[in-house]
């Protein structure tokens, strides 16, 4: 009856939430009942998509995701996963920074962050796509209107919208005396059979 969509993704998120829930319940209940004080769980189990990256901060909303934004320069995770080379650089950064070469500083920066702020704010030409899409939409609208006028709105006009029919209707309204106080018949002179002159 129900289809299981993407079971591995579901399983991962379920694992994450059940582990977090376990951690909360374990923290709430007395430690003696469990026989241990600290609740330990692996980051990879709780945040499987972060991988080996270190969660270093709050980011914009507390979710451990990476993004580049000039108004929020410190994302919640580091950009690259930890490798032995990067770990060696971090050890070196614990000492005097004058011992680090420019290349090492740049490598460490690129391990922490994906792009510099000048790369973020560099023109990427996206305005051309936006203007092009806008013009395409306007063009499609004009051609669509033309198509509807020519192909769809071609039903025959009603007989009642012809000038002859309207003239007959006016004649009949005058004969029946429609609006004889202030309406159309009040402007008709029944004695002479013409329109009144003011």
């Amino acid at each position: 009856m129900f289809k299981v969509i993407s079971s591995s993704v579901c399983k991962k998120s379920l694992t994450r939430f059940s582990i977090v829930a376990q951690a909360h319940t374990a923290a709430a209940t007395p430690a003696a009942a469990h026989g241990h004080h600290a609740v330990t769980f692996k980051q990879a189990d709780v945040y499987p998509r972060v991988g080996n990256r270190e969660i270093v901060g709050f980011g914009r909303n507390g979710e451990p995701t990476y993004f580049d934004a000039p108004d929020c320069p410190c994302p919640a995770v580091r950009w690259r996963e930890e490798t032995p080379e990067i770990k060696a650089l971090r050890e070196k950064a614990k000492g005097d920074w004058s011992n680090m070469t420019v290349a090492e500083k740049k490598a460490l920066y690129r391990a922490d962050f994906r792009s510099t702020l000048s790369e973020m704010t560099a023109p990427d030409g996206e305005w051309k796509f936006t203007v092009g899409a806008l013009l395409a939409a306007i063009g499609a609208s004009i051609w669509g209107y033309y198509f509807f006028v020519k192909a769809i709105y071609k039903s025959p006009k009603l007989e009642s919208s012809s000038a002859e029919h309207q003239a007959r209707m006016l004649e009949r309204m005058i004969a029946e005396g429609v609006g004889r106080v202030e309406g159309v018949s009040s402007k008709w002179d029944y004695e002479t059979g013409t329109w009144k002159k003011n």
Partner: peptide, 9 residues
């Protein structure tokens, strides 16, 4: 020990 964070700021 965060040299890249200093540059970033």
């Amino acid at each position: 020990n965060e040299p890249s964070l200093a540059t970033r700021y």
